[in-house]
Design a protein around this nucleic acid. Structure first.
Lengths: 162, 162
DNA sequence: CGCACACAGTTGAATTTTCAATTAGATGTT
DNA sequence: AACATCTAATTGAAAATTCAACTGTGTGCG
């Protein structure tokens, strides 16, 4: 038998960076979530209705949304049900694809989003943007955009195939 | 009555950066979590035993851990219970402070961590580190370290007080 | 000392998320 | 047309997380 090859461990600097990443992203999530809670929604819910609000016709398909906000379809369904119960969205069948469902933002949903969005930007500015220089923030954005691209579409079986 | 002052909305660039942040961080979490699942633990659990393993005596207090990994104390308790049930940690009362409990990593826990850590670093390298230049990655780390510092210790009532 | 308050951790119920089917419709191939 | 396969979405139970209440214990102070 052969010994398992040692992976390339993180250097001290890298380790520090990675730990900072984990802690900061969680703290930020918690902070933003807490602020939104006061307006009756979670960050995940906010992201959903926020995306819907920007789409033409204020409507977006479940599966597309699930991909964008990185939630399982199942979770998307449950969350949509709750949002619907609050009267913030309606679910309507898609015309061309009879399997499809789209979420439509209601006026109440729009109003709720309007209020929440103020709190949200302020949080993002205060906790993230204002702490970094403008260049730093944009650099972070473009770095993570690349990370996201690398992670998109390649489910679990990255290599070999053919 | 007076109109609510408009908050300083994000510019298009900023908005893009922020969206990239949200999506990338979630995708990365999902990817790393998926890899660890195969070894029977979640990323959150991994972080906990990983921190414990580095502490002198392989032991760390609950409340300290909760702060480090950004989890509520309640969640920390539940998670610790599960880890204990798997035999990966033991819970022991702290000597000086009779309110305190510390988590001690068992040999089984150490073994599990040893296996999982390989998968974990590889994931971090593949999905994050390798996508960025070394400078970029370290810059991201230092930027987020500042974000974290800004978020640490200031619970919910940041201003005024006195 | 005695009291008020803060801190560490736990508990169990409510809520949310995950997980493993399941239904139904689209797509591609022969 | 008939078949297998894939995609969209839902369902309900299991598992994890949050939430609010609660038990002990440390701390500061009159």
């Amino acid at each position: 038998m052969s010994t398992t090859p040692e992976p390339e461990w993180l250097t001290d600097d890298e380790q520090r960076a990675w730990r900072a990443y984990l802690r900061a992203t969680r703290q930020l999530e918690v902070a933003l979530d807490r602020d939104l809670q006061a307006h009756g929604l979670s960050l995940a819910e906010y992201e959903i209705i926020s995306m819907v609000s920007e789409a033409p016709g204020r409507r977006l398909r479940m599966s597309y949304l699930a991909d964008m906000v990185v939630q399982s379809r199942s979770r998307m369904t449950h969350t949509a049900k709750r949002l619907e119960a609050r009267g913030w969205v309606e679910r309507r069948p898609v015309l061309d694809d009879r399997r499809g469902v789209e979420l439509v933002l209601t006026d109440e949903g729009w109003a709720a989003l309007d209020k929440a969005s103020r709190v949200h930007v302020e949080g993002v500015r205060e906790h993230l943007v204002s702490v970094l220089s403008p260049e730093e923030f944009l650099a972070l954005g473009s770095a993570l955009a690349r990370v996201s691209a690398g992670l998109t579409g390649q489910p679990g079986i990255p290599v070999s195939s053919l």
